[in-house]
């Protein structure tokens, strides 16, 4: 099973350039069509399950607006502890 992840977008920092939506290998990022941020852009958001926490969106983001998390498997976590 692929690892599970999620992203948090600092929405007000996003300028809607769409570099992350294009780079995402899982195609799970999109621009929020129904809302605007304080700058007047449609911010990027995670639209569905499938994020693996690979971090590629953050690597291309010019605003450093994305924080990426990845779940640690139960076994790995207990092994580490």
């Amino acid at each position: 099973m692929p690892p599970k992840g999620r992203i948090e977008v600092n929405e007000n920092r996003c300028k809607g350039c769409e570099l992350c939506t294009d780079a995402c290998p899982q195609d799970v990022i999109s621009m929020a069509a129904e809302r605007l941020n304080t700058k007047g852009y449609h911010p990027a958001e995670l639209i569905e399950a499938g994020c693996t926490g690979c971090g590629i969106c953050a690597i291309v983001c010019p605003e450093a607006a994305i924080t990426v998390y990845r779940e640690v498997s139960q076994r790995a976590a207990s092994a580490e502890a």
Partner: peptide, 15 residues
């Protein structure tokens, strides 16, 4: 062990 905010989640990338 760095599990960030979530018990079973690690930060892969942050500002």
């Amino acid at each position: 062990m760095d599990t960030a905010q979530h018990e079973l989640e690690q930060v892969v990338y942050q500002r």
